[in-house]
């Protein structure tokens, strides 16, 4: 692997300054996407800025209507957190099914969102729960964050600091995992709030999105049958050796129906 400078700042200000000074810097969080990419020469940073020493990126705080999770929180920590399990059990369960145990022991929430893999699990939850992405510079609404294939609203050098997830009345996540990688071929989170239902879909398109057609149907009647006749537009859906766009559209509907069923029978 090509050599790089390894830097380990202890504050966000220091991290941003190091990022500005370097040629081709990359932040390192859990490394579960970045390090394999470097091994395959898909990424060759001049400077690796390790975020693990920045205390304010860690920690989980439950407040009245929401739960705030630091960007450096590992998937396993979210899955095991008593606070997350009691506030939003569906989110803890989602985290506990990302990849495999070894990946969950290192991979982090912030890394997953910054990476914005079209098949990653967390984006479905961020959209369905209407979470806010807090960075070192601003607060970004879920709808504005995921922009395109592996593209987010983050500016060059901007660091995700924490995610704030509003607490729903209830929520459920269902995914159809790729049997080899466990990434979502399709994953759907359905969340019910006092003012309506939100549906986040991952795996199907170039990046995660809210399924407004499914939301409308569920706001009219919160039941699996309500989704029977909904058309899932799939012109821009992913097609690969695992699934065609048509099959993914069908999976969106079936995963959504199962998630709705789970709302009533968790």
């Amino acid at each position: 692997m090509q050599p790089f400078n390894y830097l380990k700042p202890s504050t966000l200000t220091e991290a941003a300054a190091l990022h500005r000074q370097a040629d081709e810097p990359v932040y390192l969080s859990g490394g579960q996407t970045l390090i394999p990419a470097m091994q395959q020469r898909l990424s060759a940073p001049s400077d690796l800025i390790d975020l693990s020493g920045i205390a304010e990126l860690s920690g989980i705080q439950a407040a009245d209507g929401a739960i705030r999770i630091g960007a450096f929180t590992r998937h396993a920590q979210v899955a095991e957190s008593a606070a997350v399990r009691s506030a939003i059990p569906a989110l803890a369960r989602l985290a506990g099914r990302i990849g495999d145990a070894q990946v969950r022991n290192l991979g982090t929430l912030g890394g997953s969102l910054a990476n914005n893999d079209p098949a990653a699990d967390y984006p479905a939850a961020v959209l369905a729960l209407g979470a806010t992405v807090h960075t070192d510079q601003r607060a970004i609404a879920a709808e504005d964050f995921f922009q395109a294939f592996f593209e987010t609203a983050l500016d060059h050098g901007e660091v995700i600091r924490a995610l704030e997830f509003p607490r729903p009345r209830r929520a459920a996540y269902r995914k159809f995992p790729n049997p080899a990688s466990r990434y979502a071929v399709v994953g759907v989170m359905v969340a019910e709030f006092d003012d309506g239902v939100r549906v986040g879909v991952t795996g199907a398109g170039p990046c995660a999105f809210r399924a407004h057609g499914l939301e409308e149907a569920l706001n009219a009647s919160l039941s699996p049958d309500a989704l029977d006749r909904v058309e899932i537009p799939h012109e821009d859906f992913n097609r690969d050796l695992y699934a065609s766009a048509e099959y993914r559209a069908q999976l969106v509907k079936v995963m959504a129906m199962r998630a709705v069923r789970d709302l009533f029978d968790p």
Partner: peptide, 10 residues
């Protein structure tokens, strides 16, 4: 953890 996806410095 998978020790091929972690730098020794970490």
């Amino acid at each position: 953890v998978k020790s091929c996806a972690l730098f020794a410095v970490q």
